[in-house]
């Protein structure tokens, strides 16, 4: 170990700390918690689609959604980070996180719509593909971030590449203000990155 080159040792140390932080972050839910979350989501969808509140239909919905959730519990809840009790997490999600996301996202949406309408009228566009970095590591988290970026008018995610330092997103931007990766990331992501880190790892 002592005769190793300096740059090699530094690289090994970096990889070691990265593995430790990933193991710390990767506390997934247990199996019963996953089944309960999937069951709730499927039963809500059953109620919306059937639109009846009789006892018979409710019992059939509970049974069917439980059977389906036994087979498919790993699809939507694979990357959720577990912290605290599950009922507390669900209440936090419904009462705190979703209104905060709507509040953050609504103003960005209105501002971006006005900006793109202005670009349509005056044609003062300056398009380009820039790359931004993100700290999210799981598949579901990166997918949610890329979808939210694409949904904002004016930015469009083209590709996602995974490297050792994290994930890199290539974004087509209709009005390029800066070429630097960090400042472009701050402008494009806003508060969405911090919001997603509380749920996914």
């Amino acid at each position: 170990m002592s005769k190793m080159h300096f740059y090699l040792r530094e690289r090994i140390d970096r990889i070691k700390t990265k593995i430790e932080t990933e193991l710390k972050y990767k506390k997934v839910l247990t199996r019963t918690q996953k089944i309960i979350i999937t069951w709730l989501v499927l039963f809500l969808y059953w109620i919306i689609l059937s639109a009846k509140f009789e006892i018979f239909s409710m019992v059939i919905g509970l049974g069917l959604s439980f059977i389906v959730s036994i087979f498919t519990y790993d699809l939507i809840t694979k990357d959720i980070r577990s912290r605290g009790h599950i009922i507390e997490r669900i209440l936090n999600f419904v009462l705190l996180y979703v209104p905060e996301l709507i509040f953050i996202y609504l103003f960005r949406l209105i501002e971006a719509n006005v900006n793109v309408a202005k670009h349509v009228i005056f044609m003062d566009i300056k398009p380009g593909i820039v790359k931004i970095k993100t700290d999210l590591r799981s598949d579901t988290g990166v997918t949610a971030l890329a979808n939210l970026i694409t949904l904002t008018p004016g930015t469009l995610t083209i590709d996602v590449k995974r490297t050792l330092e994290g994930n890199t997103l290539y974004v087509h931007w209709i009005d390029v203000k800066t070429f630097s990766s960090e400042r472009a990331g701050d402008m494009i992501k806003g508060g969405l990155d911090k919001w997603l880190e509380r749920i996914f790892w």
């Binding site: 566009i125 300056k126 398009p127 380009g128 593909i129 820039v130 790359k131 890329a146 979808n147 694409t150 469009l156 995610t157 083209i158 590709d159 290539y170 087509h172 390029v176 070429f179």
Partner: peptide
């Protein structure tokens, strides 16, 4: 996203007024 990625992979170049193309 699927439309944009397929267009870039199959070789459609962006327009001349494009400032930078890091991809």
């Amino acid at each position: 996203h699927a439309l944009a990625r397929t267009a870039h992979k199959s070789g459609i170049k962006p327009d001349k007024i494009t400032v930078v193309d890091m991809y």
